[in-house]
Design a protein around this nucleic acid. Structure first.
Lengths: 223, 223
DNA sequence: CGAAAATGTTACTGGTCGGTAACATCTGCG
DNA sequence: CGCAGATGTTACCGACCAGTAACATTTTCG
């Protein structure tokens, strides 16, 4: 079933590694409360999604994390550093997503691609579907913002990974299929922002599947 | 040659209609200076592109327009109204763009589609290439912002228009080709924001042309 | 327990931003 | 010319925001 995105209130999941000295306040039967640092980061991601990076203040973030501004600034020297951490964490979640995809269809690149498309298509309807990297790239207009290099590195790595999956799927022109799918995915997500769920993104799955079918050169019928 | 985008400093062009009472201060041989209102709107569009809608203030806009904040607020009751005007003007420019496309290839829908793709691909390298509608849609996180309805209407009209062109091009599944191209275009533009000019958008023209070829049914590439 | 570290609370600074008021200047036109 | 409307100038307001200081409280762990 490949349920990789689950656990939190908004369809995101957390990594247990790299959480600092005190990950949880207690190991009793109560709900595992995250450390203030993690609460701040996750609250920031949520509020950045909802109101935009420039549309939310550090006070509101600290408040939503049930923490305070001082603790926030003890962990992050600036709001920009917090933004960077949010982006890095989003990238790590995507890494886990791809690992789960590989586990679900070991060695079968074509199945991984199809599952990837299908999951994105299913996730398109959610109101928090849009890629944090993409939104940040549009909102961080300053070319020198430290978050931009995080976005850039993630996007480059993602492209390399998808190309590799296309190659393992036996696609002749792996780069072409990779970029086709990447453009369609980014387009579907951003089109949904401007045209809504009934816009061009409604046909994303159909279009992406056709691209895989056409460029993979396989005769197999999807699904 | 279809040179529809030319005349201003940043590859945009203005419409002479609907400019208000005093369009130009003088009709002498000097450069035709726009009215303060138009200067403000065009300065706002430029600065919104460069720094984001939330990243620039009304003072800076008025200053860049060689005007002042009071004149700005005499023409627009709020910054949001100015944003709406900017979006409407961007939409009008796109209307003119499509009229020029129809004039350049009268009746030939296929040629119009191909010219559209080619122009967008050529324009991709420019630093001001990204669609104002798309950027605004990402930045105006408030669902009730008046600019969102402008974006929505424009996108709907654009989709209808492209579908119509696809029909005139004799495409069997006009909606499918339309949405494919729209997703690819939006994806190419937003991918450039996050992945740079050497990202997946470098293959946009190739991919879009292949989509037109494949779905127009002019040559055989059955699915 | 008891100390050290982490976290919470309050208040503050300096700056920016959207928006307004009062007044001065310029421009076009009868 | 002379008036009216449009435009420019300066100053100001209240709200918000990023970031800091000083101090109180809680949690962690030897």
């Amino acid at each position: 079933m490949l349920s990789v995105a689950s656990g939190s209130s908004r369809g995101q999941f957390f990594h247990a590694d790299d959480v600092g000295p005190n990950a949880m306040t207690t190991d009793s039967c109560k709900q595992p409360r995250l450390s203030p640092r993690d609460r701040i980061v996750e609250a920031a991601r949520e509020l950045f999604r909802r109101h935009g990076i420039r549309g939310i203040g550090v006070d509101a973030i600290a408040d939503a994390a049930s923490s305070n501004k001082m603790t926030l600034y003890r962990h992050f020297n600036s709001k920009d550093e917090l933004i960077v951490e949010c982006l890095q964490r989003a990238g790590m979640e995507m890494d886990g997503f791809w690992r789960a995809l590989e586990d679900a269809h070991p060695g079968d690149g074509l199945a991984q691609l199809r599952a990837w498309v299908r999951l994105i298509a299913e996730h398109l309807g959610d109101d928090d579907c849009h890629c944090e990297m993409m939104s940040a790239a549009v909102q961080l207009t300053d070319e020198d913002h430290p978050g931009r290099s995080v976005i850039r590195k993630f996007k480059d790595a993602q492209r390399d990974r998808v190309v590799e999956v296309c190659r393992k799927a036996g696609v002749a022109n792996a780069e072409l299929l990779c970029d086709t799918l990447l453009l369609l995915i980014e387009g579907a997500r951003v089109a949904q922002q401007s045209s809504g769920v009934q816009g061009p993104s409604v046909r994303f799955a159909e279009i992406a599947d056709a691209a895989i079918l056409s460029l993979s050169g396989s005769d197999a019928v999807p699904r």
